[in-house]
Design a protein around this nucleic acid. Structure first.
Lengths: 203, 203
DNA sequence: GCCCATAGACTGAACAGTCAGTCAGGACCA
DNA sequence: TGGTCCTGACTGACTGTTCAGTCTATGGGC
């Protein structure tokens, strides 16, 4: 592969990334089916035809954007996790990742709903989501096991806890994202933390 | 209000209900934005114009269908609950209501995702959903309190449990609905039940 | 160093299909 | 006769996708 080719691919890759990012943003803001390729094109300063040139079809662009966005989220969490070692701090970090501080990226949550709706009906998206969710649970499991290895907790039921707690976080995110008047951000965090502490036998 | 008027309304109400049911079914099968008024009309053996005649706009029909469907679900659960009195049996009933046996209405779940996605962006739907979710939690709370009154459990943290367990069920439903290879129906039920038993201090 | 062929990036304009919603009027009933 | 229920035919707007062709630059042949 020559330098030229590399550079050409770099341009294309940059463009693709811009478009995926723009599409993800728009999906979050307006919803999957209300996102037009013209909107995406406008955001990256290109013509609609160029978007098709890169992605072939609208659907391909949007589903790729969903997966791209989900992958970004997990990557960010993974990185965030490097910064702490204490079990409790890490658990708190995970909670914060799912339920970020107030006005911080409020409509990113909309993406999850669209992702789920798409995954429900499209096997490819479904497969991808399942795989990423598995990674997510594996990450939680690693955190717990590290805590055990460090002697912070004893003999946890890693798999049981992982499945339960991951589901709990999802459910809490739903409530908070939908502005449930009872389950606000603060309560959701408290609940998630309390359950983790209790189930893991943390001090 | 005359008999005539009453009868006329009865006809209209029947039609409306047929249309709402058909719309709900279609949304579950194909998704909110892929549901056409022509499809709904075809299912009830009417013309698209008649659907508009009753609901004015497509959006009005579909969002009403979502709310109608959610209301039906809670009503069904409420009724199902009358049939048992023992706390554990009731808890199991609640779990079964959310995670019904195998092939039983497999695509009804799709509705939840669309409902959430709509609620996220449309205040009216959001308000409705929050209210119904509050009812749902109140129902769980009633079950727990009845169990306490009957001496089956002691001094439960009703609100804490309610919020936590409702969220947990939501999260588990997501996994199961999306065919997660790790979290299948059986595991989801076990997890939901185990958490309830442990948190409530059931035998 | 010049020229030309080739490929990739990109666009404007047009096309084609889809659908929500309109409208004028028909049928039935009290 | 008037009101409710209902329809077929139509339309107007939207928008994904195609296409023919432009522009740029790279790289090889001379």
């Amino acid at each position: 592969m020559t330098d030229v080719k590399q550079q050409a691919e770099a341009v294309a890759d940059v463009r693709r990334d811009q478009m995926l990012a723009a599409a993800a943003r728009l999906i979050a803001e307006r919803g999957f089916s209300d996102t037009r390729i013209a909107d995406v094109a406008a955001r990256v300063g290109a013509s609609p035809a160029l978007v098709i040139y890169y992605f072939g079809t609208k659907d391909s662009l949007l589903t790729e954007a969903l997966r791209w966005s989900e992958r970004s989220f997990y990557a960010a969490v993974e990185e965030m996790l490097q910064e702490t070692t204490a079990l409790r701090a890490r658990i708190e970090n995970l909670v914060d990742a799912c339920l970020p501080a107030s006005q911080d990226v409020p409509d990113d949550w909309g993406l999850w709903f669209d992702l789920w709706a798409q995954a429900f009906r499209h096997p490819e998206v479904k497969k991808d989501r399942a795989q990423l969710d598995d990674q997510w649970r594996a990450l939680i499991a690693r955190v717990v096991e590290a805590g055990e290895a460090a002697g912070e907790i004893e003999a946890p039921d890693v798999e049981g806890f992982t499945v339960m707690w991951a589901a709990l976080l999802d459910g809490l995110v739903v409530q908070v994202a939908l502005d449930d008047p009872v389950v606000d951000r603060g309560m959701a965090k408290r609940v998630a933390l309390a359950v983790a502490v209790k189930e893991l036998g943390l001090s």
